[in-house]
């Protein structure tokens, strides 16, 4: 099993990469390669050109600027997993990443690659959806920002043009002390999950939730926000029953069908995992604490 023949390009800057994808026919961008390389090996994709982004060091960074945290598209999943800044300000990343593939794939895989591959079951797009992140894109006609909710066009396809690439993602970190959880169901650790849940929550000392975002992977073609659940939780101090009632709204979500699970099973998992994720978030010590 070998990749098909292609012309290989390894630009050193974003500008060169943008110029290449704007001028080449049937080009594919190669990020960490943990999804594209299998697809090449199995010849699911037959690009005439591969534009390898791995030499562009400027795309790999984790910074805080103007109150936002910015993560470069080529930042390896491993770097995000081990980032002190993110562990302090957004521990949700590490919680989710520990369920992304394996050590060997996180060493290579990137956040931008995961986002653009847009597998319905992928954890990072669900995390970015819960964070209401912004996707930064550059192309031949300049740079633009896309709200994460508008980023998926359809199944495994981002809403960017063929001559554009994702350069970074950014988000406003939640306050110190916010709570988070990532819960998923997969048949084995590291496998693609059938359904996953990212939950962010801000609660007062008395347990009153005043802000919550919850997103699901693996239910629809792209991550979905559980807005009905969020609305039922905000302004309350949920107990076991009210939490269950709020999670039950996820049974109304449109769910996809594939070889792994039926729509009704995905809806069942959504309800069950959302209640577990909310409970885990409520029990979380909170970002910036020592645990």
């Amino acid at each position: 099993m070998k990749p098909p023949p292609f012309h290989y390009h390894d630009p050193g800057t974003v500008e060169e990469a943008v110029a290449l994808i704007g001028s080449l026919e049937n080009a594919k961008l190669l990020a960490g390669g943990q999804s594209l390389m299998p697809m090449l090996n199995m010849r699911y994709v037959l690009p005439d050109h591969i534009v390898d982004l791995n030499r562009i060091t400027g795309l790999s960074h984790i910074d805080e600027t103007d109150g936002r945290i910015v993560i470069g598209a080529m930042t390896r999943q491993r770097e995000i997993e081990h980032s002190d800044l993110l562990q302090q300000r957004c521990p949700l990343f590490r919680k989710a990443l520990l369920q992304v593939g394996h050590r060997q794939t996180r060493n290579r895989g990137t956040i931008g690659g995961s986002l653009c591959h847009l597998d319905p079951a992928a954890e990072l797009p669900a995390v970015l959806t819960a964070l209401q992140a912004t996707v930064h894109v550059v192309g031949a006609h300049g740079a633009r920002d896309i709200a994460i909710a508008d980023f998926p066009a359809f199944y495994m396809t981002p809403a960017i043009e063929f001559d554009e690439l994702v350069s970074a993602v950014s988000f406003s970190p939640w306050p110190i002390g916010h709570k988070s959880a990532f819960v998923e169901f997969a048949r084995r650790p590291g496998d693609f999950a059938i359904v996953g849940v990212a939950a962010l929550m801000d609660a007062a000392d008395n347990g009153m939730i005043h802000r919550a975002t919850i997103s699901l992977s693996g239910v629809g073609a792209a991550p979905v926000r559980c807005t009905a659940t969020e609305e039922q939780l905000i302004g309350t101090k949920p107990d076991e029953i009210s939490l269950r009632v709020a999670a039950e709204t996820c049974r109304e979500l449109d769910a996809m069908e594939d070889v792994h699970a039926s729509p009704s099973y995905r809806q069942h998992l959504a309800v069950e995992l959302v209640s577990r994720a909310v409970q885990a978030a409520l029990d979380d010590a909170g970002a910036g604490s020592t645990s």
Partner: peptide, 24 residues
Amino acid sequence: HGVCGACTVLVDGRSARSCLMLAV
């Protein structure tokens, strides 16, 4: 295709699936 782990090598000290990297 990156599932079995048999081809794992260390690249600059980090484990990587050598079937999911180009030699170049």
